[in-house]
Simulated scan of single mutants.
Amino acid sequence: MRIHVLQHVAYEGLGSIARWAEKKGYPLSYTRFFEDDGLPDHESYDLLLILGGPMSANDDYNVSWLQTEKSFISEAIEQGKMVMGICLGAQLIARVLGARVYRNTHREIGWFPITTTPNAMVLGLPQQFQAFHWHGDTYDLPDGAIAIGKSEGCANQGFIYQDRVIGLQFHLETTPSAAKELVDACAHEIDDGPHTQPAEAMLVDLELFAEANQRMELIMGYMADQLETNWYM
């Protein structure tokens, strides 16, 4: 499975997904927008993976490449590609599918539980689990998508569209070092809201990261299985 990554800022990378891809022998390629990289031909990859970032999915006139990126994501979905978006990536997918993206009532930053719908079972997610969050925006569920979960601070924590497109508002790929990078870059976003943790509380429990990374592997496994199924159809 050839994976192409859309990365928006240097401090939000693949985290544990990079280890998983290396273990499986899956090649990775990148468009790093912060380095002015170009976008590939759609035939050059099997899974498009869209990472997070501090910008809004609505920032078309403030972020020079955002309209081009959204057109690329839309083309990938239309061409039947496997697509996964994390945080901003999920919001970008929701936006190109016609849903509204907007400011959430409160920021959600830190470790908070997600309660899943029965739809999340195909991803290997339990009825409730802890996930790492760092977002201020949210989105409406796109037409034709099925919801996979919610938290106390955010009604839409993820969705599946046509079995091959996944949006995850939360982070399961985050490693302790990746979380530290995010804290160092975006500490100014940590407020005293009801769904925000202090930085030290986010970083202290290494077991939370290990469990989250294991769940991320299950979701990536689902994407690989879907691709293999499509090859033989």
Score class of each variant (00 low, 15 high):
Gln7Met: 00
Glu12Ala: 12
Gly13Tyr: 01
Ser16Lys: 10
Ile17Pro: 07
Ala18Gly: 10
Lys24Thr: 02
Pro27Ser: 11
Gly38Ile: 03
Pro40His: 10
Asp41Ser: 10
Asp41Trp: 07
Asp41Ala: 01
Ser44Cys: 11
Tyr45His: 03
Leu49Ser: 08
Ile50Tyr: 04
Gly52Asn: 08
Met55Lys: 05
Ala57Met: 06
Asn58Phe: 04
Leu66Ser: 04
Lys70Tyr: 11
Ile77Gly: 11
Glu78Asn: 15
Glu78Arg: 15
Glu78Ala: 12
Met82Trp: 02
Met82Phe: 09
Gly85Trp: 08
Cys87Lys: 01
Gln91Pro: 04
Arg95Val: 03
Arg100His: 07
Arg103Asn: 03
Thr105Trp: 02
Glu108Val: 11
Glu108Gly: 06
Phe112Gly: 08
Phe112Cys: 05
Ile114Cys: 00
Thr115His: 12
Gln128Asp: 00
Gln128Trp: 09
Trp134Ile: 14
Trp134Asn: 15
Gly136Ile: 01
Thr138Leu: 15
Tyr139Gln: 05
Asp140Gly: 10
Leu141Trp: 03
Ala147Asn: 14
Asp163Pro: 11
Gly167Met: 14
Gly167Arg: 08
Glu181Met: 08
Leu182Pro: 03
Thr196Ile: 08
Pro198Asn: 02
Ala199Trp: 07
Met202Asp: 03
Met202Cys: 06
Val204Lys: 15
Leu206Cys: 02
Ala210Asp: 15
Ala212Tyr: 14
Arg215Glu: 06
Met216Asp: 11
Leu218Lys: 06
Ile219Ala: 05
Met233Ala: 12
